[in-house]
Design a protein around this nucleic acid. Structure first.
Lengths: 337, 337
DNA sequence: TCGATTATTGATAGCGCTATCATTCAAAGG
DNA sequence: CCTTTGAATGATAGCGCTATCAATAATCGA
């Protein structure tokens, strides 16, 4: 089943069929319709290999992922896969093991497959070494995460700081005064942004945040367990705990239950991300919804744009796309007992 | 950087270079060496698009996924993506919403992209309607899950029954007599297989399994909470609970902790799958390791083989590939108090 | 009405690679 | 020494698609 078959069936030339496929403007509406009918009738779909070989605007982009939560990763992947497919762009997904060697290998693999650009997420976009490697090969980079756009790197993100502040304000509005924070992985800039948002909101409400109310975590369930233990061990334990992601919030709920604290009656627990986790545990988490799939879709789109721009000779500067987050109220928050 | 450049640099024809690249036997050793040097010197890597176009063995396969746990899904996806990429096969990933409409749509989308074959997982491969649709379009199918191979469907699986039996024997060997089972989603054949394995091992050990010791779950954390509550509410509560996946095992641990039961001192909890979950909770789960990524990789390979066979005119019957599972001992099991 | 535009379509020539068959060359046999 | 054989290499022709430009049809202004 080739373009020639469609051409024969529709009565036009292969070139016209190609134009229809590629949404070229210079095709009469009636022609377009006929060709589309033929395409549908023959159940034709173009051969990507031929397409990329013939077309100069074929592009191949890489997606480097490290080791975030599985829930996050699957959404992230699916979003980018879908978008890449829709744009007829080849997406190469490569795992980046931590450590210099793992990084180096992953990047070599990407570069040797001739990618035009790469999508990175935290914490990789925070690694100067990784960025230097891409710079050296003159590869375009789009980062998903809380990072500053630069001339060679665009960014897709949500406003982590403001999101965390909004959640904090919500908890304060419920009447809580002693609020604990479980900070995220120190390597992620988003962690710092969320902490700042928390502190800013607390300060704006005139509430003190003793240092022991902010405990370091690493975005893992396990680290959440330890952090929650530390917070609930405090002589004056917090009446609410804001965890910097859902995994740690889930762990906090587990620790609370182990101590016979009802959530949310005795302890309010809030998360961040709204991964599948948030609705699969009990009680369902009040959390910040982060549009993960949309973010990776946006990253793919942005990277494609940038590659086009570069090929056209324009040298755009890095862009910064801010997507909307949303405070999702579920069952893990309540006024203090 | 094309094959012609390498040819020029090495002093041989493009064809000879191609032979070296493809490890053709009919190349003199000295020639091979020279060409390889040229390839290395020029940092050449062949254009995949041209390769698959010229090779004519271009194929496109689909992967239909529904809504398993995110941890499972991400591994499953990554395995198949990697394998498809290595085999230069286009992989189209489509989500299948539950319900007749969702299924129909997803399948239409796949068929209209002209896939040569499809990879299904449970519970989709259990749906007669879905299978009928593919049969109608004469599409090859490889199922990942506990299903019988048929003329038009191959299967990649582990021996769920024996794996569950092995886990059960392990729990019995620890000294447990009252062992509860949380059954998996009734739509998945694997659930039934695991239940059978459990029952068989119990019977072989001469242990009774009162019906109330086997509680229905749905593979979700939430359902695990309810099932665990039911089991621990029993007048003679089990000293060990075997959950049919890790999510439900994690929920069981949460419920145990809420009731001040230490795991594993007061209650042994075992899972199944060995997803990321298993090591991220505390205590780490003793569970059955299922090679998820390998299974999806194997499915891709098998489908490619079948498509090749069909194109060559051979009409193979469905194959059945059994991969190895492994009992992984961690910290959630112990002899009864 | 007629040339001048402009919109639409078609013909041709590759993209980089490999399948196929032709050619060359070295070694072996007569 | 000249064929004969087989191994090694080269020449040619596409794979299915799109870029480019040429050709045609439709539209317009005078």
């Amino acid at each position: 089943m080739t373009i020639a078959d469609v051409a024969a069936a529709s009565g036009f030339s292969p070139m016209t069929v190609s134009r229809v496929i590629n949404n070229d403007t210079k095709v009469r509406e009636s022609t377009r319709l006929l060709v589309q009918q033929a395409i549908a009738a023959l159940n034709y779909s173009p051969n990507l290999a031929a397409r990329s070989l013939a077309g100069a605007d074929q592009m191949r982009i890489g997606l480097l992922y490290s080791n975030p939560s599985a829930a996050y990763l699957s959404r992230y992947l699916l979003g980018s896969l879908e978008q890449a497919r829709a744009a007829h762009v080849e997406l190469i997904v490569v795992k980046c093991d931590s450590g210099e060697q793992g990084e180096e290998e992953a990047i070599r693999e990407l570069l040797s497959s001739g990618v035009d650009g790469v999508i990175l997420s935290e914490p990789m976009c925070d690694s100067p070494r990784i960025l230097a490697l891409f710079a050296q090969f003159d590869t375009l980079v789009v980062a998903v995460g809380n990072w500053r756009p630069s001339s060679r790197m665009s960014v897709v993100r949500i406003d982590d700081r403001e999101a965390a502040a909004e959640m904090t304000r919500h908890i304060i509005a419920l009447g809580h005064r002693r609020i604990g924070l479980i900070i995220g992985n120190a390597l992620h800039l988003a962690s710092e942004a969320r902490r700042q948002g928390f502190e800013a909101a607390m300060e704006a409400a005139g509430l003190a945040v003793p240092p022991e109310y902010m405990v370091q975590g690493h975005f893992t369930y396990r680290s959440g367990l330890e952090a929650a233990e530390a917070l609930l061990d405090l002589p004056e334990r917090p009446t609410a705990i804001f965890a910097s992601n859902d995994d740690m919030a889930a762990a906090t709920i587990a620790v609370a239950h182990r101590r016979n604290l009802d959530v949310p009656r005795d302890l309010t627990v809030c998360g961040f991300d709204d991964t599948d986790f948030a609705q699969s545990i009990w009680p369902e988490l009040t959390t910040i919804h982060q549009p993960i799939a949309e973010m990776s879709r946006a990253a793919v789109d942005m990277l494609i744009d940038q590659i086009r721009a570069r090929r056209a000779g324009r040298n755009e500067t890095g862009r910064d796309q801010l997507l909307d987050y949303k405070l999702v109220l579920r069952d893990s928050d309540a006024p203090p007992g």
